[in-house]
Design a protein around this nucleic acid. Structure first.
Length: 303
DNA sequence: TTCATTTGACCAGT
DNA sequence: ACTGGTCAAATGAA
């Protein structure tokens, strides 16, 4: 992290202010929504919320990309690219052309929530794209890596890791990294379909940041208490005050979407910046926001 | 032909 | 140096 990250350009400062503003408004909106138990506008509000979340997520993603001083390079013109081979192209391997270095790849440093679910099936109502599989040192079964299919079109950054448990190969340990910000969350969490994600065979735990040991070393007993998102709910619930109505929500939604639009404009205006602690903090708060939204969806506050 | 999966390489973190 | 997460060309299925 460079020293100027904390200072930032005027554009960076403006962007940060917009992010913070959006965060505050989102929090406010949540506190309002939480108290709405019946309203014709709930569905629309939920859709809008997810759109806003997607915008925030994309904005953060772009900030993350800006952190790298070099633009991401594609190696599409490397003839007989020497990076990947199969038995069909052994001859190509013999020509030792130095493969161009990949750039722009940055391992996420976990301002993200991790949540592990033990289930007999890997379907969860979302659409995933498998992007890798690894043999894990000391583990009996390989680990598969999936990302949300809406990573590119909606900026949904959630990934999941699926691995058979050693005790019972018919049970999968599924670790979710981050939360969905794509529109699928609406389709998946609608009340009449909520059972899709509440798999009766699954046992869920919720951890934050690096707590992934359970995925590799699942608990010996299958009976585990649900620890679902206690801390996240606590954070958000601090903002819940009094009763409110859809009329209260709509103006906030408008402000929020306007803030998201401003963010988009700033981003497309080509501002250059580096990520700062603020980004990390905001990413964390956004996830808390998403967790709380998901809780409300599951509880039927939003349908 | 298109699209999802496979799989070895690359890269970051420890 | 090692492990694990991600990339992306090759491959196979539809």
């Amino acid at each position: 992290m460079r020293s100027h990250d904390q200072q930032g350009s005027p554009n960076l400062k403006a962007a940060m202010e917009e992010l913070i503003k959006g965060q505050q408004q989102a929090t406010h909106l949540l506190s309002l929504l939480k108290n709405i138990l019946s309203s014709e506008n709930r569905s629309d509000s939920a859709v809008l919320l997810v759109e806003v979340l997607a915008s925030f997520s994309k904005a953060l993603s772009f900030l993350e990309l800006e952190k790298t001083t070099e633009p991401p390079l594609r190696h599409e013109n490397s003839p007989c690219s020497d990076e990947k081979r199969t038995h069909h192209q052994i001859s190509c391997m013999n020509k030792k052309i130095p493969a161009p270095r990949r750039t722009g790849y940055r391992r996420r440093t976990h301002p993200y929530t991790c949540r592990t679910v033990f289930s007999t099936k890997i379907e969860d109502g979302f659409t995933w794209r498998k992007y890798g599989q690894k043999d894990i040192y000391g583990a009996k079964y390989p680990r598969s890596y999936y990302r949300c299919i809406h990573k590119h079109d909606q900026g949904c950054q959630v990934t999941r890791q699926v691995q058979k448990t050693e005790e019972n190969s018919s049970i999968f340990a599924i670790t979710y990294v981050g939360e969905h910000t794509c529109m699928d969350i609406i389709a998946t969490k609608l009340p009449n379909e909520r059972t899709n994600c509440a798999d009766h065979t699954s046992l869920e735990s919720n951890t934050v940041n690096d707590d992934q040991e359970e995925a590799d070393h699942p608990p010996s007993s299958a009976a585990r208490p649900s620890l679902k998102q206690e801390s996240d709910e606590e954070v958000i619930s601090n903002h819940s005050t009094g009763a409110s109505s859809a009329d209260d929500v709509l103006p906030v939604l408008q402000d929020l979407t306007a803030a998201a639009s401003d963010l988009h404009d700033l981003r497309s205006g080509g501002f250059r910046t580096s990520i700062s602690i603020l980004d990390i903090e905001f990413a964390s708060e956004t996830l808390k926001f998403e967790d709380f939204l998901e809780l409300n969806l599951q509880d039927g506050y939003i349908c």
